[in-house]
Design a protein around this nucleic acid. Structure first.
Lengths: 138, 138
DNA sequence: CAATTTACTTGCAAAATGCAAGTAGTTTTT
DNA sequence: AAAAACTACTTGCATTTTGCAAGTAAATTG
């Protein structure tokens, strides 16, 4: 098991600390795929439309694991596969990700399904957050 | 007026698009300083404890300006100074930044003032969001 | 048992970052 | 009014990170 060097925090500012963990172009996309797209394995993450490079994916998975946002599990079907899942700390990022989606949807051209999602969240944000959390906590 | 090359979006995913704009270690810290720390000028941003490099700061200010998250204004006191402020699109990031603070405060060691802020948000999130928005919209 | 799949690693070029120093207006000090 | 200091940058260069292509080793499939 390869251990990634511990993340150095630049300050005790909560925003800075968060950025030290997921402040890059890729980490939140992995989290998105775990959160909304039912992706769980290395090769599934590779398929996403933004086309992350294999070495970057491996690096980010290690980083997110060392930050305890994701964890590795045995895949029930095959031992060639590795199952990644969000930890409770990762699941706890739901409100952050949802607010990013809402902001982006208000200000940019986005996929129709994102517009639909935003519409549903606006109807009942609390309910939606709870539902997402439940789905991921199983 | 130096124009920064237009940001390329990797996809129409709202999260990916947001990351194309502020998915790095510094942009959200500038936004934080504008949002919570009453910083408005280049040299004030440089003073923050994370110590951004001058060239990176200049680059991020251009990027945020081209994404219409901040705008440059004349400084009322001096024409040696430049006043940066959040646009309405930038102000609209308040919920994102607040959720990041809440998440980080729950899971990491942070400044005491951040804990205090989290406590106040938990009491009345809607009120706090409105108040922050009002303060920035003047 | 050969081909394919899965989860990576490696090597190298290109891009981004970080640091120190420099510059060009503007304002303050003497 | 000249010199010093301040403000908002830019420049050059070393270091680090990213991106791409190819390779590997174990597990699985045909």
């Amino acid at each position: 098991m390869k251990r990634k060097k511990k993340i150095e925090f630049r300050s005790e500012c909560p925003i800075s600390t968060a950025l030290d963990i997921f402040g890059d172009k890729w980490s939140l996309l992995i989290i998105r795929d775990l959160m909304f797209n039912e992706k769980k394995t290395y090769s599934e993450f590779l398929e996403s439309e933004e086309k992350i490079a294999t070495n970057i994916l491996a690096d980010r998975l290690l980083l997110l694991e060392s930050a305890e946002i994701i964890s590795k599990q045995k895949h029930p079907e095959s031992k060639a596969k590795v199952l990644y899942k969000l930890t409770s700390k990762g699941i706890d990022l739901i409100p952050v990700v949802v607010e990013i989606i809402l902001w982006s949807e208000r200000h940019h051209e986005v996929h129709p399904y994102a517009k639909q999602f935003a519409k549903m969240v606006k109807k009942d944000k609390e309910g939606m957050l709870k539902q997402l959390k439940n789905e991921l906590s199983e």
